[in-house]
Design a protein around this nucleic acid. Structure first.
Lengths: 148, 148
DNA sequence: ACAATGTTGAGCGCGAAACTCGACAATTCC
DNA sequence: GGAATTGTCGAGTTTCGCGCTCAACATTGT
C-alpha cells in the first residue's frame, strides 16, 4: 500500500525545476544533489517525465532540464500517474485492469472505488506551484532557524 | 500503491465466516475452496486474525473457525490494518514511522495526510455485515442468472 | 576536435510478498 | 486407548518488482 520512491523523487525533481525560476536549464547532477536522489536513477525518471511532456531537455554543455509549462498548470495527480502508473489501491480499478475474480466475487472493487476517486480528486487539486511555494517557505524557515 | 493479497484473502475469509451464520465452525479447507485461497497460505492469515481477536478456532473433528463478535461490530479498517499493517501510502504517516527526509524536505507528509485520514474514515464505516450482505445478494443474483 | 551534457537499454541485488511443507498439538469418535 | 480429523507453528522456497548501476551512444556548445 506504499507509494514507490519514483513518485517521490520525480515530484522533488520537478519542484527543483519550478524553484529555479529563470529560464536556464537545471542539470541532472544539480537536481540529484539538492534532492538527494541517485543520479543514475534520476535519469529514468526524467526520461519518463519527458515522454509524458512534463519536462524538456537541452543537450550539450550548459544543458539540463526545464519544465514545459508553468508550475501552476501541472497537477500532482498527473505527475504521480506518469511515474507510478496509477494510484489505484487495487488492480480492478485500473484502466484496462481486470478483476481477477468473477464479477460476483470481487469485494475490492466497490470498497475502494470511492476512496480511489477521492484520492485522485485531491491530488488533482495540488499544483507544482503549491509544492514549490511550500518548499521555498520551508527553506526560509530552516535558514531562519540556523541564523538565530 | 497496491494492497497486498493478504487483506483481500483475509476479508474474504471473514465474509465466509459471516455468511455461515449458524454456530458451527467453518473449516479452513472450506473457506479456501469457496474463496479460492491457497489453503496453506490461509493458515497464516487466520493465525494473524486470531492473534488480533477477530476469529477463534475449534480443534479436532468438526472444528474450524468462528467470528468472535457479530459481523456488524467488525469494521473493515481494523481487519485490513491487522493484515496489512497500515494503509498509509507513505511511511511518514505510520505510527512510529519516521520521515526519511529532514523536516523541511518532506513533500509527502502533508500531501498524503488528508487522503490517509479520509481512507481510514471510509474503511471504518464499512462492517463485515455490509460485505456479507453484499456477497449474499451477489450470489443470489448469479444463481438467478443461471436459472433463466 | 573535444568536453560537457542528456539518452537508452541491459542487467544486478535484495528484500518482500506469496506460497509450501512438515512436525506437532488438540479434540472427537469409535 | 487409538485412529482420524482438525488447527498451530515455524522454517523454508520461489517469484517478482523496486531501486539502482553501468556502459555505450547521441547531441551540442566552445
Amino acid at each position: 500500500m506504499k507509494l514507490s520512491t519514483k513518485s517521490d523523487y520525480g515530484v522533488r525533481a520537478l519542484i527543483e525545476l519550478a524553484l529555479s525560476g529563470d529560464g536556464a536549464p537545471v542539470q541532472r547532477a544539480e537536481i540529484a544533489s539538492r534532492q538527494h536522489i541517485p543520479e543514475s536513477y534520476l535519469d529514468h525518471l526524467l526520461a519518463q517525465l519527458r515522454r509524458d511532456g512534463f519536462v524538456r531537455s537541452v543537450r550539450g554543455p550548459g544543458g539540463g532540464h526545464l519544465l514545459t509549462r508553468e508550475p501552476e498548470e501541472m497537477c500532482l495527480l498527473h505527475v504521480i500517474e506518469s511515474l507510478e502508473g496509477s494510484v489505484a489501491p487495487v488492480a480492478c480499478l485500473e484502466e484496462g485492469g481486470e478483476c481477477a475474480r468473477a464479477p460476483g466475487e470481487c469485494v475490492q472493487c466497490w470498497v475502494w472505488e470511492d476512496i480511489y476517486e477521492e484520492t485522485r480528486r485531491r491530488l488533482g487539486d495540488i499544483s507544482l506551484a503549491d509544492l514549490a511555494e511550500r518548499a521555498r517557505d520551508q527553506r526560509r524557515g530552516a535558514a531562519a532557524n540556523y541564523s538565530i
